[in-house]
Design a binder for these strands. Structure first.
Lengths: 344, 344
DNA sequence: TTGAAAGCGCTACCAA
DNA sequence: TTGGTAGCGCTTTCAA
């Protein structure tokens, strides 16, 4: 390891070691305490203007940047909000939600960090998050159990919020109940007189969290009726769609809920190529209300999904951090409503 | 602030303070050093099996999780690779690239962290990153200058890699030259006999980094020909597209490069609604080779863009971290090739 | 107005 | 085989 040179040779771009507040103090001819006071604008202490200038000058000269880890170690807490980064490419809706959330939390002076936990699983992942001692953890999807929540809290997390299908003991919950999406679609198709309903279930791994409840929602919507529900596994791939379309007539379905707009587009094209008329022979409805649905012909009916606003979640987090002892809040946050166009 | 209780009342879920290695040591009846040895499997030191068991048992009992900040403070370095999280929702290609990269770096025992720098700008952002003392920083897009690189390096970053349009002094570069994408498209359209070429330029903020070079690339491809190039500002919005389509004939264009497949779909639909025949009246080509292009009719020609593999970038990072003194590498990594289908 | 020093949690050196 | 302890960089109390 490189020794810290007391007097770095000036001019040469040698790999000098990282300047600390002690270096700044030395250069400015003051103590480390004074440096801290000046750079943090500590109001409880009056520092003369000339001293301030000297310190700031020295800091700039050395390119001093404080060490966040040391700071939060000393402080005993940080303002880091941790979110595991989703492993699967998730849609534009969610991306926008994240951006909004980051912005809102930033305004409340939190730092949002997405942690790449691609390789890790369950316990391991939770421990890795806990090591960072975040003040709050936002966990999308399922996979976090009550033990996980306990680990995080014991590691000092003042708020744990799950964004997923169900409550988890000890954590705040933004209930994103995707059965509602399916339910909506199912009711709609039934109301349009359809009785043999197919439901696309993506084969891509990682999407089960959404696809299973959406299918279940359709089932539930139609359980007390004479309609039938058929799950249709489908890869996001032209060939797979063509294959499915080929045996469409023998499936005898008169409607399909296509998981989301992208799968709907895929399937619709395949069906049209196969001569299936939409919506006469088969009604199609997607979900997520993406732009592309409006551009298809016939225009794609869809289930509009309303995510919570990033601002609201940010406020929940802030509230929870300020009063960790408050009872966990549970909010149902997934609005679902049908946007009928021409495909159903 | 809560005082650390020496004997936490058992049973009650009171907000006990976070257990430290000292707590584990106390409970196991050993020293902190021994705890560290056991939990880190330090091979240089032999600890008896009974002691190991006692330590591990105590750690589990307390739910002990080491404090990453303290550890890396002590160690003088971390294995955190920092990436600013993109502010604008970026496509599936990029998302997948990130996932792959995270996975690959994870295998090399790095921890990837996406830092939400939505509110921050330039200098501020760089300082915020530097405070975390990452061992490497990967910066997508433009916006990082040589001074920024210097700040990061002075803060101990052993590697700085830019993923953007141009080299930055002192940093490794993955040159993603989007002029190549436009150039490809321009050449293709010219070869197909088109001479009055429109180029869609998204109005959405944040996309200029890509759209400007793509336009420039078309310009360059056609600069020595008799063809003309017209920039076409367009919002990602049905109405805007309809408006543009309405005045299409007076624009007198016989071809358009639509920035990417999504804008291409948008524009194509508007043109078709306006009775413009594709490709007879106007050839259309998109970019990014998304699935949706294959589903359009006519099938959409596109510029296939080849991002670098996550594994390659991970290896570059690792190499750079191991030998920070090595000269910065520069790689051109944006493959671009036309996929001709039926729209051009 | 400024400085000396303690201590956050951890690891690694040296001594026992 | 184990323990004592210094010290990473920072903030903050207490004293001067």
């Amino acid at each position: 390891m490189v020794q810290k040179p007391n007097s770095p040779s000036p001019g040469s771009p040698a790999p000098r070691s990282v300047p600390t507040s002690a270096d700044v103090a030395r250069l400015a001819g003051v103590s480390r305490a004074t440096v801290s006071y000046v750079l943090n604008n500590t109001s409880a202490v009056r520092i003369s203007e000339p001293t301030r200038r000297r310190v700031r000058q020295a800091a700039k000269e050395l390119g001093y940047v404080p060490h966040a880890a040391a700071r939060s170690l000393r402080a005993g807490h940080s303002r880091m909000v941790l979110m595991p980064a989703p492993a699967v490419p998730v849609g534009p809706l969610y991306s926008q939600f994240i951006s909004e959330l980051q912005w809102a939390l930033g305004r409340l002076d939190y730092t949002v960090v997405q942690y790449g936990s691609v390789g890790l699983h369950g316990d391991e992942a939770v421990r890795a998050w806990a090591e960072l001692r975040p003040v709050a953890v936002l966990v999308p999807g399922a996979g976090l159990g009550p033990e996980g929540v306990a680990v995080l809290k014991r590691a000092g997390a003042r708020a744990v919020v799950t964004l997923g299908p169900e409550r988890v003991e000890g954590a705040h919950a933004l209930l994103m109940d995707h059965t509602g999406v399916g339910h909506c679609a199912g009711r709609h198709l039934h109301a349009r007189g359809r009785r043999r309903v197919g439901v696309v279930v993506p084969e891509e791994p990682g999407l089960e969290v959404f696809s299973r409840p959406r299918l279940e929602g359709v089932r539930r919507a139609l359980s007390d009726t004479d309609a039938t529900v058929t799950g249709l596994p489908l890869a996001h791939d032209e060939q797979a769609a063509a294959q499915l379309a080929k045996k469409w007539r023998e499936l005898g379905l008169d409607a399909v809920f296509a998981y989301n707009d992208e799968y709907a587009m895929l399937l619709m094209r395949a069906l049209q190529d196969e001569g299936v008329r939409i919506p006469e022979d088969t009604a199609v409805i997607g979900a997520d209300d993406l732009m592309l649905g409006r551009l298809l012909r016939p225009r794609l009916s869809t289930v509009h999904v309303e995510l919570p606003s990033g601002r609201d979640l940010a406020e929940l987090v802030d509230r929870a951090v300020r009063d960790p002892s408050a009872a966990p809040e549970t909010h149902k946050v997934l609005g679902a409503s049908v946007v009928q166009r021409d495909s159903s």
